[in-house]
Design a protein around this nucleic acid. Structure first.
Lengths: 106, 106
DNA sequence: CTCAAGGTACGTCACTCATCGTACCTTCGG
DNA sequence: CCGAAGGTACGATGAGTGACGTACCTTGAG
């Protein structure tokens, strides 16, 4: 099956409400915050050890992707993920940084 | 007779997830953004002309209050509302500003 | 080749949420 | 005093959500 099935919204289409909804979930926020630690690094989805079932993880990957928070690349039996830092910072300057900072203890 | 039935969380109890959920709704976000324009101004809830029924408005007032976004003061048959700017900026520096900026078209 | 591992698709389920209507309470203006 | 206006309480409802299990697909390791 050809890839390309992964639908990503264009930067201009990213909706603030969808972004905030996506970030409201603790698991998804954790993922985004971890990605924001190294904004240019592509990470394997599987490297986030979320304590939920596989299909639930797939659900969260989709929510993050369709909200425009992350860019995902299908590599056969693996899925790579990268924060859309540039797009997000252009559309919503400082938002991800604020959420990341607020999510850090201390 | 108001017996202070309005429950407000302490600043330390404000949960980021609840704040983001509250901000994810367009109507509530609009209210918060408008309040953020004049952070020290107390406004009448009725001054926000939301196109929903009374009971729905009451619902949103409660969500905003219980998330810790606003402080509400009962004045008999009126309800005053003020953004909890200091608490929010201490807990989540820059968050409200980022959301407000992102919500402005311009 | 075989099979384990990562992901997806689909159906389900319980719960939440935004909305509404109606009834009721509280104040203020006539 | 009476009624209008702002809010609340309660119940109902339809949509959405996060979770699960199972079946299936794709790839790389053995």
């Amino acid at each position: 099956m050809a890839e390309g099935a992964l639908h990503h919204p264009a930067a201009e289409e990213i909706d603030l409400g969808a972004v905030l909804s996506a970030l409201a979930d603790p698991l998804r926020r954790r993922v985004v915050v971890e990605l924001a630690e190294r904004p240019d690094e592509e990470r394997l989805c599987a490297s986030f050890r979320l304590s939920v079932g596989k299909s639930t993880r797939t659900h969260h990957w989709r929510v993050l992707r369709e909200a425009g928070l992350v860019y995902q690349r299908d590599a056969g039996n693996r899925l790579w993920m990268r924060l859309r830092s540039e797009d997000l910072d252009r559309r919503f300057p400082g938002l991800i940084a604020a959420v990341a900072a607020a999510s850090r203890p201390s």
